[in-house]
């Protein structure tokens, strides 16, 4: 899961302080393992360095929580490109798909479309592997089947997510 872009997604909702971003992140993505403040500020520092976010206000007092950040137009473009570019089917993909789905719901974007293009990417990968199975030796067959089972698991996860979008949206916006 790309925590920097996920953070950018949360910033896309409204200008925020680091503390607000950490709270939103922990609520939506890290119930069991809250994100450290250090990670929040290093993500914000990367985002400002790359002109995806800007510091808009700095209130009097000490500490990074006094700083308010806002997404830039360049940041919004980067966000959309992240959301609507399917990920290559690799192990551990679910968390990134989940993060993109939640961010698209938070922003009122098209989560169904995002999941459909991801599904299409997975099915294309399955086709490649199925073709590779043709006339393959047993060892290759087993390796291909192992990869196919993982892709099938991802597809089931995507289907299940799609069927729960209404409830998920309610949680994302609560």
């Amino acid at each position: 899961m790309d925590s920097t872009l996920t953070m950018l997604g949360l910033l896309g909702r409204s200008p925020s302080h680091g503390y607000d971003l950490k709270s939103a992140y922990d609520r939506l993505f890290a119930a069991a393992r809250p994100i450290a403040y250090g990670q929040v500020y290093s993500a914000l520092s990367r985002l400002t360095r790359d002109d995806f976010a800007v510091l808009t206000a700095e209130e009097a007092g000490q500490g990074p929580d006094r700083k308010r950040y806002e997404i830039t137009d360049k940041g919004r473009d980067r966000l959309r490109s992240w959301l609507f570019t399917p990920d290559a089917p690799v192990p551990g993909l679910q968390s990134n798909v989940y993060a993109k789905t939640m961010i698209s719901l938070v922003l009122g974007d098209d989560a169904v479309h995002l999941l459909e293009i991801q599904k299409s990417e997975h099915l294309d990968k399955m086709r490649d592997i199925t073709r590779r199975k043709r006339d393959a030796d047993v060892a290759t067959l087993l390796l291909c089947d192992h990869a196919l089972f993982h892709i099938e698991a991802d597809l089931r996860f995507i289907d299940l997510t799609m069927s729960r979008l209404t409830e998920l949206k309610r949680e994302a916006l609560s």
């Binding site: 169904v112 459909e116 299409s120 099915l123 399955m126 086709r127 199925t130 099938e152």
Partner: peptide
């Protein structure tokens, strides 16, 4: 079934 579909050239998804 995605495995069955993987034998075809492409899919058309109806929702």
């Amino acid at each position: 079934d995605a495995r069955t579909a993987s034998y075809t050239d492409r899919e058309i998804v109806v929702r």
